[in-house]
């Protein structure tokens, strides 16, 4: 068994900022346990001598020149905003313990 616990799933959900219901946590705990058990298989062949590949094409040094290009207009930038105040995005207060 992979031993995924509901507490672990709840912690992952908080890292991922998803407010899961207890039912969702319960069912995800089962799903995740099964999936992890299955994908664990990668460890069988991932020996230390095998290098990791993070990009399928071996490119390096792809750069852009330091030249300004037009930005969006402020209206475009804010066009999808759920809430705004003038030209800024407005959000509920930020929880910050003092």
């Amino acid at each position: 068994m992979s031993g995924i616990t509901a507490e672990q799933v709840a912690h992952l959900a908080s890292l991922a900022r998803i407010d899961l219901s207890p039912e969702e946590i319960a069912s995800l705990t089962i799903d995740l346990g099964q999936i992890v058990e299955s994908v664990k298989k990668v460890q069988e062949v991932a020996t230390p001598d095998v290098p990791a590949t993070s990009h399928p094409m071996p490119l390096t040094n792809v750069f852009r020149d330091d030249i300004v290009v037009p930005s969006l207009t402020v209206e475009q930038a804010l066009s999808g905003a759920p809430d705004r105040d003038g030209d800024k995005f407005r959000v509920p207060p930020i929880l910050e313990e003092d």
Binding site: I67, V69, S71, A77, D87, K88
Partner: peptide
């Protein structure tokens, strides 16, 4: 002159959210 990962101007002062694009937004 421009931001780290997009061509928006690296400068402030002409009003909020004037130097933004799909990448830096």
């Amino acid at each position: 002159k421009t931001k780290m990962f997009c061509g928006c101007a690296n400068e402030f002062g002409q009003g909020a959210n004037t130097n933004t694009c799909p990448t830096c937004l």
